[in-house]
Amino acid sequence: MDLALLYSGGKDSTLAALFLDSFYDVTLVTGCFGISDDWEHAEAAADRLGYPFEVVDLDRAVAEEATAQMLEDGYPRHGIQQVHEHALERVAELDVDAVADGTRRDDRVPTISRAQAQSLEDRHGIDYLSPLSGLGRRAIDRVVDETLAVETGPSETIPKGDYEAELRALIAAEHGHSAVDSVFPEHTQSYVRGLREDG
């Protein structure tokens, strides 16, 4: 069975791929608005892990609407949620049996409700999987420490292949870097360099 997993190159989406690999033919997929080439970081991580990789085009109007929402709110939560839902819709349009993401139990954003998952499945005739939804951060970190070689650091300095980088770039281009700093709180990101050699 073919599965498309929304992929950033970070530890959560990578761990989700490893969990699903025994049951599905996994392709790692990154959504791109065409604002930057940051998706290449996700492609490089997928290549190091030995997974096929694909880029799907996202609607730039969704990015513009999301960044406007972020600027109005003063934080990224609703905008990120909107973009994640759009990305799942686009991935569900691929010729696959299932779609998945790396959302975990204690994520504040993005999250997919039961009703949203059911709607996605019914409208596209696919299965939606969230293999980390029963795991908290501590459990994930323990598994990752045993399995993956990961680089972590501030989100501005870690290579990442997700749509957050493009949203940051769009805000910076239209409103300056200070606007980016006012919307996005400092937080740590991860980037997978490969499997641990002793794992």
Rank of each mutant, 00 (worst) to 15 (best):
D2F: 09
L5N: 07
Y7V: 08
A16R: 01
A16D: 08
A17Y: 02
L20A: 01
L20R: 00
D25K: 06
V29S: 05
F33A: 05
F33Y: 07
E43M: 11
A45I: 07
A45T: 15
A45N: 10
P52K: 08
F53C: 09
F53A: 10
L58E: 05
R60A: 11
E64F: 14
E65D: 14
T67M: 00
M70W: 00
E72G: 09
D73G: 03
Y75G: 15
Y75I: 12
R77P: 11
G79L: 01
E85D: 14
H86F: 03
E89K: 13
E93T: 12
E93Q: 12
D95W: 04
D95M: 01
V96H: 05
V99S: 03
A100E: 03
G102R: 02
R104S: 09
D106N: 09
D107R: 04
T111D: 13
Q118G: 08
L120Q: 08
D122I: 13
R123E: 13
I126R: 02
S130R: 11
G134I: 00
G134K: 00
A139Y: 06
V143I: 12
E146P: 07
G153N: 04
G153M: 01
I158V: 15
Y163D: 06
E166G: 00
R168A: 06
S178C: 10
S182K: 04
V183G: 09
F184A: 11
P185S: 10
H187R: 09
Q189R: 15
S190A: 05
R193A: 14
E197H: 12
